[in-house]
Simulated assay, not measured.
Amino acid sequence: MKILRYILFPVMPIYFLVTWLRNKLYDLDIKKSVSYNFPVICVGNLSAGGTGKTPMIEYLISLLKDDYKVATLSRGYKRKTQGFQLANETSTSESIGDEPFQFYNKYKKDIDVAVDADRQNGIEELVSLEQVPDVILLDDAFQHRKVKAGFNILLTTYSNPYFNDMVLPTGNLREPKIGAKRANIIIVTKCPEGLSEAEKKAILNKINPENYQHVFFSTIAYSDTIISDDLIKSIDNLKTFTLVTGIANASPLVTFLKSKNLKFEHLNFKDHYNFSTKDLAELDKKELIITTEKDFMRLKQYESLKKKLFYLPITVKINDKNKFDKLIKAFIKH
């Protein structure tokens, strides 16, 4: 893969120019964006996946759901439906996508979960509901310039920050680094515990935020328990198991499990992987399977796996949480 990226290096300037020009046309108002007179918060990244958008959306849901009617709007990546879909009791990961299905399963009593590749149309559909949302959270829409969110949260990982990266196909950036200037908040995600103030300052200097931008650092907090549809087990009591992941970067999870001195084999699939009949037959031979919550949403539909399938919950911990929360709530109020 790395060799192929180096071979494609001559294509990179073309990709850079096309994405830069597209953004410039929006910045100059030649290409039109639609803005709204109610709170729309976008969570996205410059990199191609794996920055922690899903737990960040869930953090915002938990922060806001008790005070506001919240709706999430995602593209619904790799779903088998078209157009606008509002999640309901018949929805599956195939009809609305992995992450939206996860949101719906966890928060269906509190929020609306919708998908639409056309975010403008999706927002119009949401505001036409009988109960109009007070706040709409756009999942992975930083490059969707047809919609101008009132507030942009940009995520970048500690291990591969956007300021050290290049645009596709040689690097992982979907657009040039200057796109970060559109963000109101930049969060460096998946940081190690105990990140020193000196290292935070060094990262802050490289980001070089504008006066209107705020930078935060976050870590992943893993649960001490694993969960199935029916059971909860302590992770410390596990003997051996199979770890199954279909996410962009499983390294933090693997590192955590190894730090607990647990014995496991790791079956690592690509992000949003569609498990084949052969894959499922192999998984059926395993005694205990632990996976991510996103992968759990896809795999739990298979009856043969239900009694052996568990997921490890994660949450996001943000440094200076009070300041972050106040910024979000201040935007919504004003």
Rank of each mutant, 00 (worst) to 15 (best):
T157E: 02
S159Q: 14
S159I: 13
S159V: 13
N160R: 15
N160D: 15
N160W: 12
Y162S: 08
Y162W: 08
F163K: 04
F163P: 10
N164H: 13
N164P: 09
N164F: 05
D165L: 12
M166H: 14
V167D: 00
V167C: 10
L168R: 04
L168Y: 01
L168C: 09
P169G: 10
T170Y: 02
T170W: 03
T170M: 07
T170Q: 07
G171W: 08
G171I: 06
N172Y: 07
L173Y: 02
R174V: 01
E175H: 07
E175K: 08
E175A: 07
E175W: 02
E175S: 03
P176V: 09
P176I: 13
K177A: 11
K177R: 15
I178H: 09
G179F: 01
A180L: 09
N184R: 09
N184S: 14
I185K: 00
I185F: 06
I185G: 00
I185R: 01
I185D: 00
I187N: 00
I187T: 07
I187H: 00
I187K: 00
V188Y: 01
V188F: 04
V188W: 01
T189R: 04
K190T: 06
K190C: 05
K190E: 05
C191I: 05
P192H: 06
P192W: 09
P192M: 14
E193D: 09
G194T: 14
G194N: 06
L195A: 11
S196H: 10
E197S: 12
E197A: 14
E199N: 14
E199A: 13
E199M: 10
E199V: 13
K200V: 01
K200H: 07
K201D: 03
K201R: 14
K201F: 10
K201L: 05
A202R: 11
A202C: 04
I203R: 04
L204Y: 05
